[in-house]
Every structure is written in C-alpha cells, then in structure tokens.
C-alpha cells in the first residue's frame, strides 16, 4: 500500500533566519530535512550463526556477522541511526546453553545496539541469570510495565530512555508480556506485570508533554495480534488505544511482516507497527524525515512502505 501526500522540503523558517543577519546556527540548520533511521530486530533467540545450507526452512539466512556489516553500512550512510531489539535475545541455540547469554550481549554491544526490551525467554535462566549477563551489555534495557523494584534487576531497567540524534529527541519505552502462566514464577520471582496499554498511555504522555520528544517509539514484546483471543493485549490493540506513538516495534509472536502495518491511533492518526519475524533473518528499517516550521501539513506525514 502506498499513501502519498504532498510534503514540502524547503523550510521557510530557514529562509527567514538566513535573512536576519547571516547568523550561523549550525546545530539548528533547519534548511535541510533531518533523517533518523531506526533499525530493529526481535526474537533473535541466540541465533548467532547463519542457518546452514541444509536447513529445511531458513537455509543460508541470518547471522550476526552479516547483520553487523549491514548495520555498519547503514550507519555510514546515516550516522543518525538507532539500533533496537524487542526482546527474546536468549534461548534457541547451544550458545545460550553453554554461555548463558554472554555471547549474545557481547555481540549486540559490538553492533552498538542502543536499547532492548525484555522478552519472556530472557528469564530462562531466571532473573538472576539475566542479571549476571548485564555487565556484558554496553546497551540499556527499557521496560515500563515490568516492575523490578523487588528484584536484583532494580535500577538496571528504566521505563524509558531519551536519545538525541541531530537535535531530534527520540523517546523509547518498553512493554513486556504477561509472565504468569508463561514463565515459571521461580524464574521471574518478584517481577510485577502491569497492563501494557495503561503504561503505554502514561509513557506517551510523559514523553510527549514533559520530555518534549519529537519521535516516540514503543519497544514491545507483547505480540503482534491474537486473532483467536480478541481480548488479549497486542501491538495492534496498543496502537489503537494510545496516542502520540509513532512506531511500535514488536516481538514475541515471530510475525514476519513484509512491511510495517499502518494503524490508526485513538486520535485517528497513523502509527506504524513493525516486526521482523525471528532468528535474525531480517533487519527492520524505518526512516523518519523531519522538517521544521509551518510548512508541514496538519494531517501528518506521508508514509511509504
């Protein structure tokens, strides 16, 4: 689907500025359109090596070292790039059984991941097993609906994080799936789950109104959609029930979306929902182009997916 709307690249504000005395304001050079690139993975499940040539389903696909090359080339093209992961980093190959997630975190650090959220399988060696690997991660974790305050992870996971690229304030918050019945209680211990939609509503308000973010991203491990369980919270439901979120990066359901889904939020505005299946077979890429000034149409951005 293509949804083209006219948009004007040139900023009148910049023209005005240039006219008032030639004062150079490099950091706010609004004459150019700014571009923020969001790269994302989900449910990589310890798939460090590519699938072998004899694999019945994913022959010769995936591989962290290839992902590293791809990410590096995109960063070279646009340094204003974020790399995010939507959880279930752990579990799925012997690398996890042997090293408990150490290699996964070290490699994600080499690839310069910015943020990740927590998936249910990231508790597979217990919350203590997750905590033990935190020193190997040069990136941070966000989760707004898991309360870790009575666990070892207290203070190691923030509800949201703000990243600034080219003067653009990007707010990223995380949401995770209900653990009861899915993960053994002795694994997640005193981690308390809260409703993802309520937390997402709080987060998007804080990020928009208090933190003045230009771009709001929800990093989710609640699952894309549950057609057979209409009451189960999902990314699609979260998209419809919230406002001010620009992009939901999902996981858990291993949903292979060939392109992001465009949903309408509670105000009737567009919100993108994306998920790239699992096992590092794909890298999701969403480019946001920013213009400043009055010349942006009120009905929102043109979306090309």
């Amino acid at each position: 689907m293509m949804k083209r709307r006219q948009f004007i690249q040139k900023s009148t504000a910049a023209t005005l500025l240039a006219g008032v005395g030639g004062l150079s304001l490099q950091s706010f050079d609004s004459s150019k359109t700014k571009k923020i690139t969001i790269l994302h993975t989900n449910d990589v499940h310890s798939h460090i090596d590519p699938f072998g040539p004899d694999d019945g389903r994913n022959a010769n696909k995936g591989g962290v070292a290839r992902r590293a090359t791809l990410v590096e080339s995109i960063r070279l093209e646009n340094p204003n790039t974020l790399l995010l992961d939507a959880g279930d980093i752990f579990q799925g190959t012997p690398y996890f059984n042997y090293y408990g997630g150490e290699l996964e975190f070290k490699l994600m650090s080499m690839l310069k991941y910015d943020l990740a959220t927590i998936g249910n399988h990231d508790f597979d060696n217990g919350i203590d097993g997750l905590y033990a690997q935190i020193p190997h991660a040069d990136f941070e974790f966000v989760s707004a609906n898991y309360d870790f305050s009575n666990t070892v992870m207290d203070t190691h996971i923030k509800p949201y994080k703000i990243l600034i690229k080219d003067g653009i304030r990007i707010g990223v918050f995380g949401v995770g799936i209900k653990l009861e019945g899915l993960v053994d209680k002795k694994m997640y211990k005193e981690t308390v789950y809260h409703d993802p939609i309520e937390k997402a509503q709080d987060m998007s308000r804080i990020l928009k109104e208090e933190e003045k973010c230009d771009l709001i991203i929800c990093l989710s491990h609640i699952g894309y959609e549950y057609k057979n369980k209409p009451n189960k919270v999902s990314d699609i439901k979260l998209a419809r029930a919230t406002k001010n979120i620009d992009l939901i990066i999902g996981g858990h359901t291993h949903t292979f979306l060939p392109k992001p889904t465009i949903e309408k939020n509670s105000e009737g505005k567009d919100v993108l929902v994306n998920q790239v299946g699992c096992y590092g077979l794909y890298l999701g890429k969403v480019d946001f182009y920013f213009s400043s000034g009055k010349n942006i149409k009120a009905d929102g951005a043109s979306i090309m997916v």
Partner: peptide, 16 residues
C-alpha cells in the same frame, strides 16, 4: 516544531 514529514519502512534480508 520538528515534525515528521515523511516515513519510509522496509525489511532488509540478511543472507549470503
């Protein structure tokens, strides 16, 4: 007044 004017999304293959 930094506003999103255009969004492009695509999925990139990771393969041989």
């Amino acid at each position: 007044t930094q506003k999103v004017s255009k969004i492009e999304g695509k999925r990139l293959n990771i393969d041989e």
